[in-house]
Design a protein around this nucleic acid. Structure first.
Lengths: 253, 253
DNA sequence: TCTGCGGCCTCACGCTACGTGAGGGTCAAA
DNA sequence: TTTGACCCTCACGTAGCGTGAGGCCGCAGA
């Protein structure tokens, strides 16, 4: 029950060369060798490799990984818990990034320019992740990636005009509902909020109710976004936010 | 309104050397230079830099980034949408990884050994991300990281014994409830399910109701986990799953 | 006006984590 | 016994910077 380099490589999705490298630097040396000098990896070697790959994935330099794995306190459970924690943090940070992207998209559609500081602040940290050709394979075998790329690329100027007009129409409809006294948690306002959400989903990204709520709050919090609604009617921004929240609540229940 | 290398570097959180490098390879050359040869970055240079950093973060090689950014179809909106999509995928994949970790932790606590294939399959793809010292800074300034590391390292053999005993006690209590005919969606079973959830949260990771539901399903789906409950009482596995779901539902409402 | 000091410049070599052959044994099947 | 897949060890190449070395701006203070 031991494995050759090639087998391990296929199993773990790394190259043979990488395994040679790990052997060279002493990060992962196979438990034994055959008489002919062939590397033979045991089960526990695979265990170690899995951890190596995990920490590598999270961007740790190999040297550091060796230190982590060779610490005497390193039980399997200890590692799993640390790994879990690291993953949760990473997900958090990517989630923040998506939120920033969503904000920027909203800003663009409204013709607002964020300050350089704003656009870089979410960045703050981190580093690269994978390689390009691999990347294309991963993301659905290249075909799907290409497809989505083309779909995006096909947004012409004409599309843009329709997009902004459509957005403007929703905004005006909301203003009308507001000035005519329709309550923000009434069906009319909620339907318009829903239309707004779908408008974003159609043109930008899949806007969940949760994300939509966030957008609504942002409109009120950031005067530059408010400046997009206030000219239509004073107090409209809050109205829009409330309608969005009401619509989301309606959907939840 | 233009910026020097140093200013840009601080703003974007990269080194001056990196900016020099991007200039060298033609990925990002400053709009102009002063008479003395000083680089001066314009607003649109910052725009471009932000995109460069984003794609770099996602692991694209610099060469590829240059191609992406120089495509004529590359409007700001196009990029934002692509970026959003890429982020969502990456988050998905990390979420899968956490699920795999959770599964492995459960397996360990029950003394089950997953097959090599299982432990590597979630890996399949991707690559590294950041550097170690930076990493320590990021994750809460090193101190917090150290703290969590120590907290984890402090799990002794004695702790382990208490941990498994505690888990066993919950399992036995569930078996008793089951054999005594208490309904899976009754308060007794639900309370025990909740105890199970908190047991995991205390010792392993923050087990949300959602994750807990996933665990319950896994117990039933994977016979190796079922083998942990079935010996106590036939049909207990399904009972546990149902109790977990009932408890989660109780919390949701 | 000089002088210091921080910031900027251009080489240019070093480093990590492998990629990519070159040249040559090994082993199970045909 | 031969063939083809797999393995071995050099050993040089590459990307994306890090890290000085040596020297030119530019402005505040003496």
């Amino acid at each position: 029950m031991s494995y050759s380099v090639g087998q391990v490589a296929r199993l773990a999705g790394v190259t043979v060369r990488a395994l040679h490298h790990y052997d060279e630097i002493g990060l992962l040396s196979p438990g034994e060798r055959t008489a002919a000098g062939y590397r033979r990896y045991t089960e526990s070697d695979l265990d170690r490799l899995q951890r190596v790959l995990f920490y590598r994935e999270l961007g740790f330099p190999l040297e550091e990984i060796a230190v982590i794995l060779d610490r005497p306190d390193a039980s399997a459970m200890t590692h799993l818990r640390r790994q879990h924690e690291l993953l949760v943090r990473r997900i958090d940070r990517l989630t923040n990034l998506t939120a920033a992207i969503e904000k920027e998209m909203e800003a663009r559609t409204m013709g607002i320019n964020l300050t350089p500081e704003e656009r870089f602040e979410v960045f703050g940290d981190f580093r690269p992740e994978d390689h390009a050709e691999e990347a294309e394979q991963r993301w659905g075998g290249g075909a799907a990636f290409e497809q989505s790329r083309e779909r995006m690329a096909n947004m012409t100027k004409a599309d843009w005009v329709r997009f902004t007009e459509e957005g403007g129409a929703v905004a005006r409809a909301l203003a009308e509902a507001y000035t005519s006294g329709a309550p923000a948690d009434g069906p009319r306002a909620m339907d318009l909020a829903e239309e707004h959400r779908q408008h974003i989903s159609r043109w930008c990204y899949d806007c969940t109710f949760e994300i939509h709520r966030g957008l609504g709050d942002m409109y009120v919090a950031d005067p530059r976004f408010a400046a997009n609604y206030e000219p239509l009617a004073e107090g409209l921004t809050e109205y829009v936010r409330d309608a969005i929240h009401a619509n989301a609540a309606r959907h939840d229940s």
